[in-house]
Design a protein around this nucleic acid. Structure first.
Length: 462
RNA sequence: GGCGGCGUGGCCGAGUGGCUUAGGCAAGGGCCUGCAAAGCCCUGUACCCCAGUUCGAUUCUGGGCGCCGCCUCCA
């Protein structure tokens, strides 16, 4: 059983008390209007990690994350680039999945598109109107939030306080500045659908309610998203569900934001780095490790220096992995031993789960894994193969379980490399180290480093 | 202005009323090696400021200072 911080009650609460129950998770996904940046990458990683861990614990998970393919920003971009909003959405959705693959973020079980749920959204808005929670203005249908008794649950503020702070930008006709658009009346040149409220398109807050309910049922376990969605987006989702008597999400989870120089990374501030960019410059797993080494609820700075730190730490993981593979393939005689001696792993395993279950304390879990990694190397150094192998295997398994990509170097040894390597070995046998070093440099210039060991020289891709 | 959060060693970042230490990266020393690489061992530098509670606070309480998020599209 895992404890997670619940934004609705401002403290941690257990989830998944019954193994029988499928854990339904809905995470507000991407609005596909531009290239995703590392802030988007963080939420994707956080929930990917949660999902992987829940499965590791043996839970049945149904993971849903939407694609908002209809939105003001998509339409704006399409206008300014003189093309259709659909082509904009399509292009950036493609980019989104491409970048997710780079990050080793698994595709959710369901990735509903807003445009596929227009009818159901219309239905929901009609119900809200019938129940007296919505009212019409010239430019659309609005949700009257003060009719929802629990409104403000996620904001943790009085309606009155909120109202005083809200900027009333455009619509003085609204009953309250907090009221939000359920349906936006059609404007010339914009996509629109027929509805009982006239031609138009649904507001942003409605899609998640409809898609979550269609795919996960009227109540589900966990709703997640970036901290900046907590209010008003999630509050407004809740309001619609609550108005119609649905339980909706039992638990609300929000991840901290990526910051740049202490400021939130966002498209509007222009201080963003795209995911593609960072994945090209660095091992994408380094970003995942960075996310794992910090608390998911805290702000996170992502600098090139930190990415490099992460890459160096990854090198130790990969190195142990290679070491274990060599043992597994070369030492047949201890094969039977390798499966023994698992008892001492249990304690590490328990500690690992203890940290992970404590509101996903991944930094402590990482610390434990790195300590164990060192111990495993130590044991192997002492030629304690079975114990070292088992501990090391556990460490590697956990890193990979959390989505750090497997990396067992499969060096494609070309004929040229083969010859160079053989010549160097001969030179070393002849104690002609000058020649050996020249050859090592040559091999290095081809992109491979050499690690000499008792079992011979090994090549490693740089 | 309202609400929420944060301030830890060179950098990032956990955690705890005292017990020997988080961890990653960097730095210094060592082992191994022909030299390297990889790995391992050892080392240092902390808990924003002030008051209070306490035998004892980095950890609890109050105040101050600084920073951030939300209240408006936003992962």
């Amino acid at each position: 059983m895992i404890n997670l911080f619940d934004t609705a009650i401002s403290r941690t609460a257990p989830i998944g008390q019954s193994q029988e129950q499928t854990i339904g998770i809905y995470v507000c996904g991407s609005t596909v209007y531009g290239p995703p940046h590392i802030g988007h990458g963080r939420f994707a990683l956080v929930y990917d990690i949660l999902w992987r861990y829940l499965e590791y614990l043996g839970y049945q998970v149904s993971f849903v994350s939407n694609v908002t393919d209809l939105d003001d920003k998509i339409i704006d971009r399409a206008k300014s680039e003189g093309r259709s909003w659909k082509s904009v959405a399509l292009q950036y959705e493609e980019q989104w999945w491409h970048d997710m693959e780079l990050l080793n973020v698994r595709r959710p079980h369901h990735t509903p598109h807003a445009t596929d749920y227009i009818d159901q959204m219309i239905e929901l808005i009609s119900k809200l109107e019938e129940a007296g929670y919505a009212y019409r203005l010239d430019d659309g249908v609005y949700m009257q939030v003060d009719k929802v008794p629990s409104y403000g649950l996620l904001a943790h503020q009085d309606l009155a306080t909120l109202r005083s702070g809200a900027r009333i930008a455009v619509d003085a006709a609204k009953n309250s500045p907090l009221d939000f658009a359920l349906w936006k009346a059609a404007k010339p040149g914009e996509p629109s659908w027929d509805s009982p409220f006239g031609k138009g398109r649904p507001g942003w807050h409605t899609e998640c309610v409809v898609m979550a309910n269609s795919l996960l049922g009227k109540d589900f376990l966990l709703h997640g998203g970036g901290l900046d969605l907590c209010f008003p987006h999630h509050e407004n989702e809740r309001a619609q569900a609550a108005a119609l008597g649905m339980d909706f999400a039992e638990h609300w989870m929000h991840n901290g934001l990526v910051e740049v120089g202490g400021q939130k990374m966002s498209k509007s501030l222009g201080n963003y780095t795209t995911l593609e960019d960072i994945c090209q410059r660095h091992d994408p797993s380094a970003y995942r490790l960075l996310v794992l080494q910090s608390s998911y609820r805290s702000p996170l700075e992502v600098t090139p220096e930190l990415m490099e730190d992460g890459e160096k730490a990854l090198a130790r993981i990969y190195s142990l992995d290679r070491r274990l593979s060599d043992i597994a393939t070369s030492v047949d005689s201890v094969d039977s031993d390798l499966s023994l001696d698992r008892a001492n792993i249990e304690e590490v395993k328990n500690d690992f789960q203890k940290y992970m279950n404590d509101d996903l304390n991944t930094p402590s879990a990482m610390a434990l894994l790195f300590v164990s990694l060192r111990q495993a190397n130590n044991l192997l150094d002492a030629n304690n193969l079975a114990e070292g192998y088992n501990l090391g295997k556990f460490v590697i398994d956990m890193f990979y379980m959390l989505g750090i990509k497997s990396y067992v170097a499969e060096v494609e040894i070309s004929d040229e490399l083969q010859i160079l390597l053989r010549e160097r070995n001969e030179a070393r046998d002849n104690r002609d180290f000058v020649k050996a070093d020249v050859l090592r440099e040559k091999i290095k210039s081809l992109g491979y480093s050499i690690e000499d060991s008792a079992s011979g020289a090994k090549l490693r891709a740089l």
